[in-house]
Design a protein around this nucleic acid. Structure first.
Length: 530
RNA sequence: GGGCCUGUAGCUCAGUCAGGUAGAGCGUCGGGCUUUUAACCCGAUGGUCGCGGGUUCGAACCCCGUCGGGCCCGCCA
């Protein structure tokens, strides 16, 4: 059974109405790691729907969280906003400075980072109900839970200290008020008179906050279960940081009972790292953003990456060959006929499970229905995009008529972007030699060398278009009563330095005839030296 | 200190939860495709399942131990 169906089954054991929740703090650039959180939730929701459950998928934007520090991509002037809520501070401009102009137009720090992520979500067809945490506090959604928390401060303290074996300071209180300047740092709670918290800040200023009006926020370990309570969350996937023993899920599980509810079904997922570069981190700038990823590959591939990997398995995102491999695997999967595979005699239980899982992973990945004509592997498209500068030539080669489906056009555009990016792997890049490559020439065998003079002759005199070049090559081989394979191998070694390559005639036709002939002559000369 | 994940073919991994003759893709090698020659099709090659014990008729799988890799436990998905 696919992992999403396993979760759906757990949900169905609990009831028919469910809210699957995800959430992210918009403290910096979103990256593809965040995509795992939201795609995991999305896929569980879809599985639950398939199982006949009444399910809603929500995405909480933790805009009430404070700015923790001046990240590397921020100007030092952001120091003044440390401790201030992300919805209450200005967005950074291109150089990382606070952009007061946009701020005055109502765009906050949180909005700034959320916007591109929302665009990416639309592209990958994830459509949750968005909940803004800051607004939720302001509109009193947390009123009940905040009052319960403050009235049960001792119980909550006991839970956190026991479960997480952390010691809380004496002045700890389950509410972080906002001081006169808008910060929740360095403030000490001095009294509680439901629903008013009294406080004193680091400079000795005193004040009061009404917890029912969002004049502050609950600390994370309480904030989370409070959200479960007021939203009615019954399932939530979360990163392994929260899932560690004594982590915030463990404490939240007990705290939420004070709010009269049960903890949601949990699912801990592993991180996505960048191949060879460790975990992604917004603050270090070591990221690939969702939009950047989507400029390279179709959204289906990103969905497939998450869908086909069990949540507890770490994903190494590789923008080079790894991307080609996953994309090609996706293509292969789309062309499988699962019904026929399942009818096969003598399938072991495992084989059946594997087929089932592949089928589900594919279903979860698809955004639009499969189009028969659109199947071309990444490798093949990579080659075509490099050898044919005009789109229509690509379509011609693929046997698609004048109006290719829009999904195909998008794929080709993405491929061209990828080829021009730093991510494109050398392994797939087509290179044309300018000088004979001695190592490659040494690989020429007798048959290859024998056909070279013929090739030089016909290629030197033929019309320089794809069809003529092709018939010239075949003809040269035929004249010597040998297989065209020898001729092609010779050409690849001489022209590209490889034993095999993409279809040559089309490539040659775009190059200069004389320089190719010159290169072949030089290669022949080198081969005769030894 | 506490906890999680991970080690299976040259590479990427599935298979471990429900023990029953070691799998896939890529790669490599061979053949085909009278030539979409990095496409496609067919075939072959390839693994003491990290190591040591235990349970069992039977262990990649369960248990104990051990070695190596990654990671979490203030915030972070």
């Amino acid at each position: 059974m696919h992992w999403s169906d396993v979760v759906a089954q757990r949900l169905s054991e609990r009831g028919t109405k469910h809210i699957v929740s995800t959430g992210i703090t918009p403290s910096g650039e979103f990256h593809i790691g965040h995509l795992r959180e939201i795609l995991t939730g999305d896929m569980i929701s879809k599985a639950a729907k398939k199982a006949g459950l009444d399910v809603e998928f929500v995405f909480i934007v933790d805009s009430a969280d404070p700015l923790r520090k001046v990240y590397s991509f921020l100007d030092d002037s952001y120091a003044q906003y440390i401790g201030h809520q992300l919805k209450q501070i200005p967005p950074p401009d291109d150089s990382g400075c606070p952009d007061m102009d946009r701020f005055s137009k109502g765009i906050s720090y949180a909005d700034h980072f959320l916007k591109p992520f929302k665009q990416a979500l639309e592209q990958i067809d994830v459509r949750p109900r968005f909940i803004d945490n800051f607004d939720s506090y302001a509109s009193g959604k947390f009123a009940e839970t905040a009052r319960i928390a403050c009235n049960n401060a001792d119980k909550i303290r006991e839970i956190i200290e026991r479960v997480s074996s952390r010691e809380l300071s004496d002045d700890w209180f389950p509410w972080n008020p906002i001081d006169a300047k808008g910060s929740i740092d360095g403030i000490t709670v001095t009294g509680w008179n439901d629903p008013i918290v009294s406080w004193i800040d680091s400079e000795g200023n005193e004040g009061q906050s009404d917890v029912t009006k969002g004049e502050g926020k609950l600390p994370w370990r309480i904030d989370w279960p409070a959200k479960w309570a007021w939203i009615g969350v019954s399932m939530e996937p979360f990163g392994k940081d929260h899932g560690a023993a004594g982590g915030s899920y463990d404490t939240g599980k007990e705290i939420v009972e004070l709010f009269g509810r049960n903890a949601p079904v949990d699912l801990t997922y592993e991180w996505i790292s960048l191949r060879g570069q460790g975990a992604m981190s917004s603050s270090s700038g070591n990221t690939v953003g969702p939009l950047e990823a989507l400029s390279l590959v179709p959204p289906e591939i990103l969905r497939y990456l998450v869908a086909s990997t069990k949540p507890n398995k770490a994903i190494e995102f590789d923008t080079g060959m790894g991307l080609v491999n996953i994309a090609d695997e996706f293509e292969r999967t789309t062309s499988r006929d699962f019904a026929i595979e399942m009818e096969k005699e003598g399938l072991s239980r495992r084989q059946m499970v594997a087929i089932e899982d592949a089928k589900t992973a594919l279903e979860l990945s698809l955004i639009t229905p499969l189009e028969e004509a659109s199947s071309v592997t990444f490798r093949h498209l990579a080659m075509l995009a490099q050898t044919k500068s005009k789109d229509e030539d690509v379509w011609g080669s693929l046997g698609v008529d004048q109006s290719p489906p829009s999904t195909m056009v998008e794929r080709l555009n993405r491929m061209r972007t990828w080829i021009n990016s730093r991510h494109f792997p050398d392994e797939l890049r087509i290179t044309i030699l300018e000088q004979p490559n001695r190592e490659a020439i040494a690989l020429l065998d007798e048959d290859n060398i024998a056909v070279l003079p013929q090739l030089i002759q016909v290629l030197g005199s033929c019309e320089w278009d794809s069809a003529s070049i092709q018939s010239s090559i075949s003809g040269a081989a035929r004249n010597l009563e040998t297989s065209p394979r020898h001729a092609y191998r010779a050409l690849y070694l001489c022209i590209m330095g490889t034993e095999r390559g993409p279809r040559l005639p089309a490539i040659l036709s775009q190059l200069n005839q004389n320089s190719i002939v010159t290169l072949l002559n030089a290669s022949l000369a080198v081969s005769q030296e030894s």
